[in-house]
Amino acid sequence: MEPMLVLENVNKAFGGLKVTDNVSFSVMPGEISAIIGPNGAGKTTLFNEITGHLTPDSGRILFKGQEITGLHTQEIVARGMGRAFQITSIFPEETVLDNVRVACLSRLGQTRRSLRSVGNFSQATEQAFAILESLGLKDQAQRPAFELAHGDQKLLDIGVALGLEPKMLLLDEPTAGMSPDERHLTRELVKRLWKEFNLTLVFIEHDMDTVFGIAQVVRVLQQGRLLAEGTPDQIRSNPEVITAYLGEELA
């Protein structure tokens, strides 16, 4: 089977600071995997490179077998790459419904329509409601997004990405800033979305219960380098990972 995403010797430095250090790995279609590593390890930067927000200094990135290195974000998104953000990125003054609906309209290529009001675009509207239903946000559909609780805003961020019907979804710390209860719910939700939307899903996460609870593959980044890659059991018992990272977390 052809991998969904391939990174080949990707490098990136900010000034003298190496934030992506010769990283190579492949993500198989339908896989759910986690990227872990200490603060500043370069996890978010890696997502930025995959989505065209940053261009690597060298190396290649392939998505669905085609090279996407150096393409604009818009083109990469159009090929089926979706992303939710570490710092929630939504449209605060629009309603919860419109946040998702604008993504659906975008996917349907209807964002240049200027005569009929958004409510008349029934395909996008129905799809947006279905996504809000999956996320448990349907009751809040008509509220402006800024009124939502922090945790719900993080979910809405994921909802915006889902509106584009991505093949692959990157989630940057989906449970960050949540209470233990909310975390538990979000963990189950991410797993359910992965199945329901047939996604290849990669998430960055610091919460180890989430990582070892739902990931099939775990990759560990440290100072921009890929320190280890394997199943949760392999990672948990990897001496290098324990010394470098997990030691402090599990202790």
Binding site: T73, E94, V102
Partner: peptide
């Protein structure tokens, strides 16, 4: 709607394609 989104969060608009 897209224009209002451009005002509120241009970075995210790019991620809408």
């Amino acid at each position: 709607l897209i224009l209002r989104c451009v005002r509120q969060n241009p970075a995210r608009v790019r991620f809408l394609g």
